[in-house]
């Protein structure tokens, strides 16, 4: 879907992720400051910013890997617990919320003691209670979708970085998530393997998956994103369509950042 089309649908789009006045600190380091953001269903949101700006922390808060201190974070109809809530318990609720969320990590985090097929199948078996043969069929189908059918029996140690990341995407898709989160999915890859992963992500976007992506790949962002968010020192400095952000940034700092990143 092109960006222009999105604009007309935007107002009727239901917010699947709603972040209101979110604050997060690591000890005394205040890393996210009063963040307000909404992500619509089916929207592809790309988050850009310098390292240390808090963009990874933001996306990790969405799926509960980081705990936030104050504000409201609602994901797909569920209210995410704050740090205070988490200290009491509530792990079971969190596990349930996470079934509808998929997360792809910069370091892939594949389970090294399982084959690619098992990596993809384990969650449907354990979490959704599917039968092993059913789950295996699902796994093979998904691996085929990301182009790795012939490598299904291999272990992560035998796969390249790009292949591992694609397995990781298939693994998340096996849980049929409604939202997919990507934390710098191609930053740990050799340049020649970035393309194969971006292809898979492009395909997902085309099929209407709601995606929040933290990335440095500006070309990809321009092509696929419905909106781009620029985070600077823990605050959302600018948000808009790719055309608005990349071609006509209104903030000085956005311009500086883009000029540094887009130079090479």
């Amino acid at each position: 879907m092109s960006a222009i089309q999105n604009l007309s649908d935007a107002s009727s789009r239901e917010a699947i992720v709603s972040i209101a006045r979110l604050n997060k600190s690591f000890g005394s380091f205040h890393v996210l400051k009063d963040v307000d953001l909404e992500v619509g269903r089916g929207e592809v949101l790309v988050v850009i910013g310098a390292s240390g700006s808090g963009k990874s922390t933001l996306i990790r808060c969405v799926n509960g890997l980081e705990m936030y201190q104050s504000g409201r974070l609602t994901v797909d109809g569920f209210h995410m617990p704050t740090q205070a809530d988490r200290e009491i318990g509530g792990d079971r609720e969190l596990a349930e919320i996470r079934r509808g969320l998929g997360m792809v990590f910069q370091q892939f985090n594949l389970f090294p003691h399982m084959s690619a097929t098992d990596n993809v199948a384990i969650a449907p078996i354990r979490v959704r209670g599917r039968r092993p043969d059913e789950a295996k069929a699902i796994a093979l189908r998904l691996l085929d979708r990301v182009g790795l059918r012939e490598h299904a029996h291999k272990f992560p140690g035998q796969l390249s970085g790009g292949q591992q990341q694609r397995v990781a995407i298939a693994r998340s898709l096996a849980m049929e998530p409604r939202i997919m989160l990507f934390d710098e999915p191609t930053s740990a890859l050799d340049p020649e393997m970035v393309g194969e992963v971006l292809d898979v992500m492009r395909e997902l976007a085309r099929e209407g998956m709601t995606m929040m992506i933290v990335t440095h790949e500006m070309g990809f962002a321009r092509e696929v994103a419905d909106r781009v968010v620029y985070i600077d020192q823990g605050r959302i400095l600018e948000i808009g369509t790719p055309a608005e952000i990349f071609d006509r940034p209104s903030q000085e700092r956005t311009r500086t950042f883009l000029s540094r990143v887009l130079r090479h």
Binding site: N63, E96, R98, A123
Partner: peptide, 13 residues
């Protein structure tokens, strides 16, 4: 990262 990935898939403790 292993624990994070596993939890992100919704696995119980």
């Amino acid at each position: 990262g292993q624990v994070e990935a596993a939890r992100s898939l919704g696995m119980s403790s």
